[in-house]
Nucleic acid binder design. Structure first.
Ligand code: MN
Ligand code: MN
Ligand code: ZN
Ligand code: ZN
Lengths: 130, 130
DNA sequence: AATGTCAAGGATAAAAATTATTATTTAATG
DNA sequence: CATTAAATAATAATTTTTATCCTTGACATT
C-alpha cells in the first residue's frame, strides 16, 4: 500500500495536512462516500470545509489517485486507485467488496471500439448480512 | 419491442398520456437522461412538470419497467428494461451502446455471496467519434 | 352515462447536493 | 526568510432532487 505522502509527491499537487488526512481516511476505509469521509475528517480537522473535501476529491480523481464508484442506490464512493477490479455491493448494508476480474472474461468488443476503462458492479446480499 | 401501453397495463400503474409519452420517448432514444427526456416531452406536453418526470421515472424504475444507467461523468440515463446486457459509453459524445455479455464471463464469486444484479460499463471512444 | 375513489399531474416550495467566489493562509522554492 | 502560486475556510450561489398541496383524470362500479 503506497503511502499518502508519496501519492501526492508524485503529482503536481501540494502536500497539505487536509489532503493527507483525506487519503489516509480513504485508505483506512477502503471505499467511502463524501459524507462519511467528511464526518471522519472533521474529528481531526474540526474546521475543515465540506467544499474542500469536494474539491480535493475531484482534484485527486483528476490526477488519477482516486477512483469513483457508482452504486445503484447510494451516493458515489471513492477509493485509492489500484489494479482494475470489480465491486460487489451489498444491498442491505451498502458495504462494497473488491473482487478480481479474470482477464479471460473480457467481452469481445473489437467490433464496437477500443476500450479505455471498465466498471463492473455486482449486487446482492453479503455474507455478514445473510 | 413491447409497447408502452402494455408495459403499464401489466403493472399496478395507471395509463396516462404523460407516462406513455415518457416510455415512448425512452424507447425511441434507447438511453436518455432526465433532462433530455424532459426536453423531448415538453414538445408534446408543454405543460408537463419536471417533477412529474422525476416522479414517474422513479415509479417506473420501482416497477421494474425502467433501468437506470450510471455513466462515470454524466447524469443517470434510463432505458426500458430488457435482457441483461453491458453498456459501452463513449467518452466523447456520451452516447451509450448496448453489448451482449457472454454468460461464460461470470466471475466466480460464490465465495462472496449470491448475486442478484450486475452492471457492466466499458468506456472508450465510439467509431463515430474516431 | 354518472358517480366515487384513489392515483397522478402541475405548480411551487423545500431540501439536498454540488460548485463558485473571495479573502486569508500555507506549502514549496530558492 | 521572502516570494509566489496554490490551497483553505467561509460563505453564497447554483443545481439537482424531493415533498407538499391542491386539482385533475383514470378507471371500476353502478
Ligand atoms: Mn475497490
Ligand atoms: Mn442498454
Ligand atoms: Zn451486507
Ligand atoms: Zn462517440
Amino acid at each position: 500500500m503506497k503511502n499518502s505522502q508519496n501519492l501526492l509527491k508524485n503529482s503536481p499537487l501540494k502536500v497539505t495536512p487536509q489532503r493527507l488526512e483525506i487519503l489516509q481516511t480513504i485508505q483506512k476505509n477502503g471505499h467511502i462516500s463524501i459524507d462519511d469521509l467528511y464526518a471522519h475528517i472533521k474529528e481531526k480537522f474540526p474546521s475543515i470545509s465540506l467544499a474542500t473535501v469536494y474539491k480535493n476529491i475531484h482534484t485527486l480523481k483528476d490526477e488519477g489517485i482516486l477512483l469513483e464508484i457508482h452504486p445503484q442506490d447510494a451516493k458515489s464512493h471513492f477509493e485509492i486507485k489500484k489494479e482494475p477490479h470489480g465491486h460487489f455491493i451489498c444491498k442491505k448494508c451498502g458495504k462494497i467488496y473488491d473482487f478480481e476480474i479474470k482477464t479471460s472474461c473480457n467481452p469481445n468488443l473489437s467490433e464496437i471500439s477500443e476500450i479505455d476503462e471498465s466498471e463492473v458492479y455486482l449486487y446482492g446480499v453479503c455474507k455478514e448480512c445473510q
